[in-house]
Design a protein around this nucleic acid. Structure first.
Length: 434
RNA sequence: GCGGCUUUAGCUCAACUGGUUAGAGCGCAGGACUGUGACUCCUGAGGUUACCGGUUCGAUCCCGGUAAGCCGCCCCA
């Protein structure tokens, strides 16, 4: 016996029937994002390590300890992308897109890689769907992007996703605010865990979304960044809220929402799954989408001064929710054709292929076998209709087609359709899957 | 990275305080019914009890290690 292999920890096979959920979600995304004016881009899985160090931030966990980094044969430091914003920005700059159009709206979907401790909905190879809008400073751009997320959750059928909103300001007032925060948390240094102390030193704002029990009181009384941001950002944020209300998109102001990546400025938001009743299938990993404005990133990466807003959604979590909430809707053939031994079998097979090539969902059992078995198979794949094709049908040029979606015990329903009339008949049936 | 829990058939789970052919339901395969599914009945296949080691006359059960999965922290989508 030779050794059997298992997928690398944290990386999963996506197989039928679950894959159908992925395809459905991705299909909805392509249509909806397209309608919002966003075009798809695909960037490489790996990038120069320095790209992520510069954009995501050297002290973040993502860059500090979670990247899959290696030296390639040309002695370059390469990293598998841990997120999609930096690669998109790199592509935007490298291809000089800003020179060809003043406003650019992109979306991407694909695998990202982070070496993390696994949990439900959190894997080392995970899938993100993200959007980036470059070139508009106007609050309308923030709101367009948020509206896109909002509508997307609606269309894929995931309710109870709550929009949390905050603003981090344009950065000019941040040093002063950080000083204020440090003052505030100073008396609590003794009760902090080592991790929290580290955060205090390196990334003080992160303390605001810590779940440490000893810090909850300190967090509740901490100064809000919203109170110390610059006037321009305040006005911007007010406009964003006004527009959201106009669009009927509910939101909650969340002063603790700071987000981890260094590049965020002004508006930041998260969509968090918060079911009103019952268990939360995602536990504490309820953030299903995170995003915001990053007006300086493009310039900091060597590009032109271009403001930008974007977000990234974790598809793994959404698939989990859709599966739990709606189950899996399998694609099913409209018509299943049973075959027999004998010369007419070739004609039956030819008929199946012809109908398929004309655009109909028609299936058969390539193993042939007994007719009851074939009909059982038709039932298993949830075919809507079943017809045998043998010598009788071949000479009569007519199929007797049984309805396979009757309630158990209901009287049989059989229709006779001439072979020539099959395409027309299928056309009338193909849009009625129970 | 830290703390805790878990792992038995393809799936969901059993097996008294360690006791010798590890069971069930679902699913899968075949038959009852050689040209018509579902319901019913019968039959069958499928397990080194995650892996490695220890204690014991004897381990699915107790102990240790490893791996994978789950919960919380951390982090984040």
């Amino acid at each position: 016996m030779s050794k059997t292999f298992a997928a690398v920890k944290g990386m999963n096979d996506l197989l039928p029937p679950q894959i159908e959920i992925w395809q459905r979600i991705e299909g909805i995304a392509r249509k909806l994002f397209g309608r919002y004016g966003f075009s798809e881009v695909r960037t490489p899985i790996v990038e120069d390590t320095a790209l992520f160090v510069r954009s995501v931030g050297e002290v973040t966990d993502i860059v500090g300890k979670e990247m899959y980094t290696f030296i390639d044969k040309g002695d370059r430091s390469i990293s598998m992308r841990p997120e999609g914003t930096a690669p998109a920005a790199r592509a935007y700059i490298e291809n000089g897109v800003a020179n060809t159009e003043p406003l650019t709206r992109w979306f991407y979907m694909g695998p990202m890689f982070r070496y993390e401790r696994m949990k439900t909905g959190r894997y080392r190879q995970f899938y993100q769907l993200g959007a980036e809008a470059y070139g508009a400073l106007d609050p309308a751009q923030d709101v367009e992007v948020i509206s896109l997320c909002h509508e997307f959750f609606k269309q894929i059928g995931v309710p109870d996703v709550v929009l949390h909103l905050n603003s981090l300001g344009d950065g000019s007032t941040r040093p002063a605010y950080l000083e204020l925060l440090k003052q505030h948390f100073l008396p609590f240094l003794e009760v902090m865990s080592p991790e929290a102390k580290l955060a205090y030193e390196k990334n003080t704002m992160r303390l605001l979304d810590s779940k440490e029990a000893a810090l909850q009181e300190a967090i509740a009384s901490a100064p809000a960044i919203l109170d110390s941001i610059d006037e321009g950002s305040k006005q911007h944020f007010a406009d964003v809220q006004r527009l959201l209300i106009k669009l009927g998109i509910p939101f909650e102001l969340d002063r603790r929402l700071v987000r981890g990546l260094d590049y965020y400025t002004r508006t930041t938001f998260e969509f968090i799954y918060e079911p009103k009743s019952g268990e939360n299938a995602l536990g504490t990993a309820g953030t299903v989408c995170g995003g915001g404005r990053y007006d300086r990133l493009v310039h900091e990466l060597g590009g032109p001064e271009k403001p930008a807003v974007g977000f990234a959604m974790g598809l793994d979590r959404l698939v989990l929710l859709v599966e739990k909430l709606k189950g899996i809707e399998r694609a099913a053939p409209t018509l299943f054709i049973g075959t027999f031994d004998g010369p007419e079998r070739d004609d039956a097979i030819a008929l199946v292929m012809k109908l398929r090539n004309e655009g109909f969902d028609v299936d058969f059992d390539p193993r042939n076998g007994k007719l009851p078995k074939q009909k059982e198979r038709a039932s298993k794949v949830n075919a809507a209709w079943f017809a045998a094709y043998g010598v009788n049908e071949h000479t009569a040029r007519t199929l007797k087609i049984d309805n396979m979606r009757l309630a158990p015990g209901a009287p049989k329903e059989t229709v006779e359709v001439a072979l020539d009339a099959l395409p027309a008949w299928l056309n009338s049936k193909s849009k009625t899957p129970s």
